[in-house]
Amino acid sequence: MPGAEVTADPGQGGRFGLFSVRERIPLLGGRLDIAPLAPGSRVTICLPQGSASRVS
Rank of each mutant, 00 (worst) to 15 (best):
F19R: 11
G3T: 03
T7S: 14
S51F: 03
L28F: 04
E23I: 14
R31P: 01
P36M: 09
I45G: 02
V6P: 00
L32M: 12
A52G: 11
R22V: 07
L47E: 05
E23T: 11
G13F: 07
G14I: 07
G50V: 02
G11R: 10
R31G: 10
S56K: 10
G50W: 02
R31C: 08
G11C: 10
V43Y: 04
T7P: 03
I45V: 15
V55S: 03
A52M: 08
P26G: 09
S51Q: 06
A8N: 11
R54C: 11
G17T: 02
L47Q: 11
R24D: 06
G14Q: 14
A52L: 15
P26L: 03
G11M: 05
V21L: 13
I34H: 04
I25A: 05
A4K: 08
R24Q: 15
G50N: 04
G13S: 07
G29W: 00
A52Y: 06
V55P: 00
S20I: 12
I45H: 01
R54W: 04
F16R: 11
G13P: 02
A38D: 14
A8Y: 13
A8K: 12
L27F: 03
D33T: 15
P2D: 13
L28S: 01
L27R: 05
I45R: 02
A38R: 13
P10Y: 12
V21N: 02
A4I: 12
R54G: 07
Q49L: 09
G50M: 02
R31Y: 08
R15D: 13
G17M: 06
G17I: 02
G3W: 08
G11Y: 01
G3F: 06
G40I: 03
I34Q: 09
G29L: 03
A4D: 04
S20C: 10
P36Y: 13
P2S: 04
I34S: 09
G13Y: 05
A52E: 13
G40L: 08
T44Y: 01
G11P: 00
G3K: 08
G40D: 14
E5I: 15
S53Q: 14
S56Y: 10
R54L: 06
R15G: 08
G30C: 06
E23P: 00
C46V: 15
D33M: 14
S51T: 07
L18D: 04
F16E: 11
G29P: 03
I34F: 05
P36Q: 14
V55R: 03
P39W: 01
A4F: 09
I45A: 02
R22N: 09
V43E: 00
F16M: 12
L18G: 05
D33Q: 13
S56D: 09
V55N: 01
A38C: 12
V6K: 05
R54A: 14
V21T: 11
F19K: 12
G11T: 14
S56N: 12
P48N: 07
L32T: 01
P10E: 07
I45D: 03
P10R: 06
P48V: 00
S53K: 15
L28V: 06
A52T: 15
D9M: 09
T7A: 15
I45K: 03
E5R: 15
G3S: 10
E5H: 14
D9P: 00
P10C: 10
